[in-house]
Design a protein around this nucleic acid. Structure first.
Lengths: 195, 195
DNA sequence: GTCATCGCCTAATGGTGTTAGGCATATGAT
DNA sequence: ATCATATGCCTAACACCATTAGGCGATGAC
């Protein structure tokens, strides 16, 4: 019986699956190799080192997340689009906790320049079309939305909400509402500022 | 020459300093022991295992951050207090990147119940006194503020803003402004909801 | 002085990332 | 068809890490 051929894609996917099931920290070259029925030095023909493998998982996660967000916000506008964007993030973090964790690591060059990263930014900016924001404020608003969504999901994952009431789910909707309100009441930029 | 006595506090502090200078991942028992002029098994008399040591760093960071926030927001109200709260977080993250990283790990029981964690939540809630929010919304607003601040600083640390203009510093002030606006325009809770 | 406790030690084990070099099979040229 | 080559995975080896078991000397009580 011949095992499936070893490719960089299959290795990264195995690593991502391992991260989802047993935690990101336990993504070790040995464990990935075991899962693929192979010895760990064999991976070095396809992957530079452990760090490169983890960055591969980050890029994969960015791609998958961008795809989900794209589907979620299509055909929506305003608050509906904002909710879809946020929920797509939350669903992805729930369903693929290991991949999500890969998104919280310092981004290398490859991840920063990846199509997934660019798409997520572009999709977030597209959501802003439903709000009365000057074009020049879009960058800040995109960063604001990204910060709040990512921050909330990180704290939730770290258990920061689990020791107090009400449950995290209630706050989630309230916070999306607050985000929506913030975008509608977006303060005017101070005069004479360069981007 | 007699070395300083080994205590759990000195070990945790050495670990935190190591995290700040060489990165959180490089906080290994061996490295901490080296820094203290001691062999690594000796640490086990004072610390259960590596995970407990890292949680100790988290608790230390929570304590220090709470102290800074406390000083920063004292005597301020409204937007001024909000800015002071946020900037205290940002300054701490800048000055002590390793300790800050310790705050982004899944919180164990000890960290979750620590005085520092409670104080930070309480101080954030106190900032809300300057805003027209019903008491019942405070939990959600505290989580909102925490999510945005932590999310922004995480993304900044991970380099998510460093590949685009304008610089992260400009967005920071704009985002605090958006937070302020969101708290003023806080949406009314839907009717008939239980906490 | 004796003895027990305590704090740090050495020794050892199993796991990890990574490099160097071997061997067999698939691939291409003639 | 035969042979050279290259490719892909292998074993062996090294250094580093966390963790456990057991030793040993100094310190304090009596």
């Amino acid at each position: 019986m011949k095992a499936a051929p070893l490719t960089v894609a299959s290795i990264v996917e195995a690593a991502a699956d391992l991260a989802d099931t047993t935690g990101f920290d336990s993504v070790t070259l040995s464990a990935v190799a075991r899962r693929l029925g192979v010895r760990s030095p064999s991976l070095y023909s396809h992957v530079k080192d452990r760090d490169a493998l983890l960055e591969g998982v980050t890029v994969l996660a960015l791609t998958e997340l961008a795809s989900r967000v794209s589907v979620a916000v299509a055909g929506r506008a305003g608050r509906s689009a904002l909710e879809a964007l946020a929920d797509a993030h939350r669903d992805y973090a729930r369903e693929s906790p290991g991949r999500w964790e890969a998104l919280q690591r310092p981004a290398g060059e490859e991840a920063a320049r990846s199509a997934g990263a660019r798409d997520i930014v572009a999709l977030t900016a597209a959501v802003l079309r439903g709000y009365p924001l000057p074009e020049s404020e879009h960058v800040h608003a995109v960063r604001f939305i990204g910060s709040t969504i990512n921050g909330y999901l990180s704290i939730e994952r770290n258990g920061g909400f689990s020791h107090s009431l009400p449950s995290a789910a209630v706050s989630w909707h309230r916070i999306i509402g607050a985000l929506d309100a913030a975008l509608r009441a977006w303060p005017a930029p101070p005069e004479g500022e360069q981007p």
